[in-house]
């Protein structure tokens, strides 16, 4: 066995896929007791929106990832993103426009019909996309299994590529956690085709449609390694935001809440690190789905030339 990939979150599966495509022999070692942070992700492939606070490298590499996902999984939806703000927070929307590129000012109701009459102005990022992260990870895993890659929970037999996120804290100095809280609800009265971001000076949030009337809402950003259940405050704020987007969500049924710890380096940019005879690919911060494919391609290039 040439390579043992530790971790089957978005990083591990992208690395495994990229290596497998180069004909490398590999296995994936999972820890059944740990839920990957990417399981709680929004799955937005939104490099331009992220450019509001992320450096240019995220915007640039994020664009490449949209194509990678489209070539590897079946549920990529290239519908764009809508960004809106309540009337009294319009200055937040103008700020967002100033900080980002590749958007246009629109009447949100003309793009997303259930927003009709609710918000007079919004930003549309037409070239962005989104996926259901859980389906996408499942599909990558199935594809790897079909190509003969083994997934197990035993001891690694090959050279280690550690993609374990926060579980690698003891080996990676400067890796810290940024707590994120999310929820999933179900509502059949409102139909959105694309992610909607609602700006707020303190509690910006996003709403991502999933299949069967479900929506994912995320996500808080707290400088903490506390992975205990969602706080009342986060729940209240996220539900208030959802209600501000559309009042019919008041009758939605809450299906799930979750908390994940985003592994992050001080500059919030992921890294490939070679240390003690192992490789570490870590620090995805809030950009796992956006950056893991590019990082996987970079890694393969680095080790195979």
């Amino acid at each position: 066995m040439a390579w043992s990939i530790l971790g089957s979150g978005v990083t591990g599966l992208c690395i495994a896929t990229a290596l497998c495509e180069k004909g490398e022999k590999l296995e994936v070692v999972e820890n059944p007791n740990i839920q990957a942070a990417s399981y709680f992700a929004g799955g937005m492939l939104a490099p331009f929106c992220e450019g509001e606070s992320a450096p240019d490298i995220v915007v640039k590499n994020g664009q490449l990832s949209v194509e990678w996902w489209d070539n590897h999984v079946s549920n990529v939806k290239k519908t764009g993103t809508i960004v809106i703000a309540p009337p009294r927070d319009m200055s937040e929307l103008r700020r967002f426009a100033n900080m980002t590129i590749c958007h246009e000012w629109v009447d949100p109701g003309k793009i997303e019909k259930d927003l009709k009459g609710r918000f007079s102005e919004g930003l549309f990022f037409p070239s962005e996309a989104f996926i259901d992260p859980r389906l996408a990870l499942q599909e990558l895993k199935e594809n790897l299994k079909n190509k003969g890659v083994s997934f197990h929970t035993g001891s690694p037999k090959g050279k280690i590529i550690d993609c374990t996120g926060m579980a690698a804290t003891s080996s990676l100095k400067n890796l810290r956690a940024v707590r994120g809280e999310m929820l999933i609800f179900e509502c059949h009265e409102v139909n959105f085709l694309r992610p909607i971001r609602l700006l707020h000076p303190r509690f910006p949030c996003y709403l991502v449609p999933r299949a069967n009337g479900r929506f994912m809402v995320g996500a808080t950003m707290v400088e903490s390694n506390d992975d205990s259940p969602i706080s009342a405050r986060a729940l209240i704020e996220m539900l208030s935001s959802v209600y501000a987007i559309h009042p019919a969500f008041a009758e939605a049924r809450i299906i799930e809440t979750g908390t994940g710890c985003r592994p992050s380096f001080p500059d919030n940019i992921p890294q490939i690190i070679e240390q003690d005879g192992k490789f570490y690919i870590n620090g995805m911060y809030r950009h796992g789905f956006l950056l893991a494919p590019v990082l996987a391609l970079d890694f393969v290039k680095k080790i195979l030339g």
Partner: peptide
């Protein structure tokens, strides 16, 4: 208040 004891990594930075 929000970060609590779990925010020590950020504070150390």
């Amino acid at each position: 208040r929000r970060e609590g004891v779990g925010g020590s990594e950020f504070r150390q930075l």
